[in-house]
Design a protein around this nucleic acid. Sequence first.
RNA 1: GGGCGCGUAGCUCAAUUGGCAGAGCAACUGACUCUUAAUCAGUAGGUUGUAGGUUCGAUUCCUACCGCGCUCACCA
Length: 517
Amino acid sequence: MALDENIYKLRLDKLKQIEALGQRVYPTKYEFTRTIQQVLAEHSQKTAEQLEASRVNVRMAGRIMAIRLMGKAGFAHLQQDGQRLQIYVKKDAVGEKGFELYKLLDLGDHIGVSGYLFRTRTGELTVHVEEITFLSKGLLPLPEKWHGLTDVELRYRQRYVDLFMNPEVREVFLKRAKLVQSMRNFLDGRGFVEVETPMMQPIAGGAVAKPFITHHNTLDIDLYLRIAPELYLKRLTVGGFDRVYEINRNFRNEGISTRHNPEFTMLEFYQAYTDYRGVMDLTQALIIQAAQDVTGGMKTKWGEQEIDWSDANWRRMTMREAIIEYWPDSAGAKPSLADFASHDSVKALVQQFNSAHSHMAYDPNEPAGRTIASLFEAVAEEHLTQPTIIYEFPTAVSPLSKQKADEPDWTERWEIYIGQMEISNGFSELNDPEDQRRRFEQQLKERERGDEEAHQMDEDYIRALSYGMPPAGGVGVGIDRLTMLLTNSQSIRDVILFPLLRPEKRSDNDETSKENR
RNA sequence: GGGCGCGUAGCUCAAUUGGCAGAGCAACUGACUCUUAAUCAGUAGGUUGUAGGUUCGAUUCCUACCGCGCUCACCA
C-alpha cells in the first residue's frame, strides 16, 4: 500500500472524528469579516499595546500551511490569497472540544477562526483564537514545507498545488491578469469594441500555421480550430465596427517549446482609417502602458539582461536595415540595399552567410522574400533584446498586408521584437479584393509546392472585401510572451496555468490508479 | 521528429569502483499553554519510472519503452 494512501485513510478517519465533535465536514459557506490580506493591511503597523488597548475582533478563513502543537496550546499559519497570518490556539480559550478539533487538523485543511488580534512575544501579529470552524479537509499530504514543490513536471501537472505552495507562481498569474486588464482599459478608452469571433472555422485563415481539425456531428462537417481571428475581425470592419479587438485563444498544431504552446493567447485589434504607422504608434503605447501597469516601472529583468520599456528606448528599423546592421563580421562585407532586390543576389547573401556563420536552412525554389525573412531571423533576431520595431516585410510572407506603393515586393508590415522574441505583428490591411484574390492564388501555388501551411482560398472573405473594407491597420500581440517578459519567465509554460503535457499514464493496475487519485 | 540530460519514500535530496537503499520534512505514538524550518523521545514508510539483458550480485553497466527538462528543426 502506498504511503499517501495510508495518509489518505488516516485523514478520512480524522474526518469522522471531526464530525463526531459536532462539526460539518464539508460545510457550504463561512462568513468572514476580513480577508487575511485585509487584516495584514489594516493592523500590521499596530503595536502590541495598541492591539491590547482596543481589542480587534476578526473572523477569517484560510488553509493551514504550518502547524505547531505544544501540549495544551499551539500555533498555525493560515493562508488565503497567497497571504499568511498566524493563529494561536489555547485550550483555555477554545475549550475542550475546540482543542480536540485543533489536534485533528492537518496541513492543507481549510478552517475558519474567530478571535482577536495580538502580538506574540516575538512580535508576530497573531489571532488569539476563540472558535474554530472546520471547513474542508486536505486528504493528501502537502509537499515539503521548506523546499516546496520544485519538480517542474509536478508543478505543471498539479498546478493547483504549485499555486498554493509557491507564492511567486501565483504572482505571475496575477500579473498576467493585470496585463490583460491593462490592454482592455487601453483599448476601451480609445473607443475599441471587444468582440468574440468563431474559434471553430471551416477555413483556417489569418495566419500561416498547421491547424487542429475537429468534426461537427450534426452538420457532418470538419472544422478547424482557429489559428487566428484575423479574417473575421476584418469582416467586422466591413460591417462597420471601425475599432474592434478580441482577446483570442489560438490553436496551432505545431511543436511545443519554451516559447510555443499549442494553444496560446493573442490580443488582436483593428482600427479603420489608419495604416501600419498608426497602429505601430498605438501598439508601442499599449505595450509601454502594460509594462507600467503590470510592473509599476519601466525596467524589467530578462534573464541576465535588463529590458527598458520606456518610449525613448524603442528603436525602429526596416528588415533590410536590421540584416545590414547585425550582419556578422565573420560573414564578410555587409549587404547593401541592392542585394535584396533580386533572387540571385539574395541567394548569394545566404551563401555568404552560411559559408562563414552557422548554417541557415535554405530552399532555392522559395520566393526571394521568404529567404530574406529567414535571413533576418538568422542574422538579427538574437540581437533584439530591447524593444525594436522591424518594419517593411517581404510581400511573399505577408499575404494579408498592403504593399508599399513604391516597392511592391515589400509590404506595410512590422513586428515588435523584445527579449529576442517576436511579440507583436501589425500591418496596413490589404482591402483590395482583386489583390487579395491574387495573393490567395499565390498561396495556393505555395500549397501545391508542398507548403501545407500556405493560406487557403477564402471566397467569403473576398466577398466581404468586395463590399468595401475601409482602409485599416491591424495588430496582433502575443499575451503569453509579453507575460513571460514582464515576469521574467523563461518558459511559456510558466505563464500558462495548465500547459499542454502528455497525459499521465493510467494503468489498469489497482495501486497505480489509486495513487493517481 | 533529431541530439543531450534527468527519473530513488508523499515532498526535497543522498548512496565510494557494481557489494546490506539512507537522511530531512511530511505522517504515526508519547512529552510540552508564546511557537515560527518549534523542540525532545520513539515508530512506520521503497518492485530505485517500466520491461528485458550482462553479472555470483544492478539504484549503479547495456538495450528498448514511458515521462519530463534543455536544445535543434517547425513556428508566434
